[in-house]
Structures are given as structure tokens and as C-alpha cells.
């Protein structure tokens, strides 16, 4: 489970909260994505949702793999988005913009995660 052995500073708590939010967003995407698949729609949301759940859980456990997984979901999303709608900026907006915002936060939390992983 989440390592409670070492004290969490402000950034440590931020990392945990962010990781849980990420997992929750993944859960929403995966649940909706499963429904969409059942209706005969795109598989993307289910896959991306599962990726985000796993990424969030790993980050919550101070695992750097969670970061790599997030970046993998992000890269996959960009490829999928361009495949689906080309380079149309308005159509890329809902597909990619949110991941960029989350990605920036991931990178901001990266030093904290590295420090905590090193001291585990």
C-alpha cells in the first residue's frame, strides 16, 4: 500500500492527492469507455482510462513507473488523436489539451517523486 513510513511534506501530499485524482479520472474514463465499447464505439477511452488508473496508483505508491506510464498514455493519445482528426486544432483540443495540463503537473511533481522513491 501507500508508504506511510516517511513523513509527507506539502509536496508529498500534493503528489498523493494528484495521483489519486489521476486514478479517479482514469476510473471515469474507463467506466464510460466500457459503456462506449458496449455501444459499439471507440476502444480508446477504456484503454486510456485503465492506463490512467494504473499510472495514478503507481504514483501514489511513489513509483517512477507511474510517470512513465502516464507519458505512454499521453503519447498514445496524441497518436490516436492525430489518426482520428488529423491536425485540426479545435478537434485536438478536447483530445489532447487536458493531458498536457496533467502532464505539466506530473513533471512539476517529478522531483518530489524521485526524492521519495530514493528514500523508500
Amino acid at each position: 500500500m501507500i508508504s506511510a513510513t516517511q513523513p509527507r511534506g506539502a509536496t508529498g501530499w500534493a503528489l498523493l492527492i494528484f495521483a489519486l485524482i489521476l486514478a479517479f479520472l482514469g476510473l471515469v474514463l474507463a467506466a464510460g469507455g466500457l459503456w462506449l465499447v458496449a455501444l459499439g464505439g471507440s476502444w480508446y477511452y477504456l484503454i486510456a482510462g485503465l492506463g490512467l488508473i494504473l499510472s495514478g496508483v503507481l504514483m501514489a505508491k511513489d513509483s517512477l513507473t507511474g510517470v512513465w506510464l502516464y507519458l505512454a498514455v499521453f503519447a498514445g493519445t496524441v497518436i490516436w488523436a492525430v489518426w482520428e482528426v488529423g491536425l485540426s486544432p479545435w478537434e485536438l483540443l478536447p483530445r489532447v489539451f487536458g493531458y498536457i495540463v496533467l502532464g505539466v503537473i506530473v513533471l512539476l511533481l517529478l522531483p518530489t517523486l524521485k526524492r521519495r522513491q530514493a528514500t523508500t
Binding site: L29, L36, E84
Partner: peptide, 19 residues
């Protein structure tokens, strides 16, 4: 794929409604 939104979540919602 013509469904839209601000984020993947509302876009997904609209895709479900479309289907």
C-alpha cells in the same frame, strides 16, 4: 468522432449519447 467537448470526459459523454 465528430463529438466534442473541452476534455476527454465530456467528449466521451457526448460519444456515448451519440451511440
Amino acid at each position: 468522432k465528430d463529438m466534442w467537448g473541452m476534455t476527454p470526459i465530456d467528449q466521451l459523454w457526448c460519444r456515448i449519447q451519440f451511440r
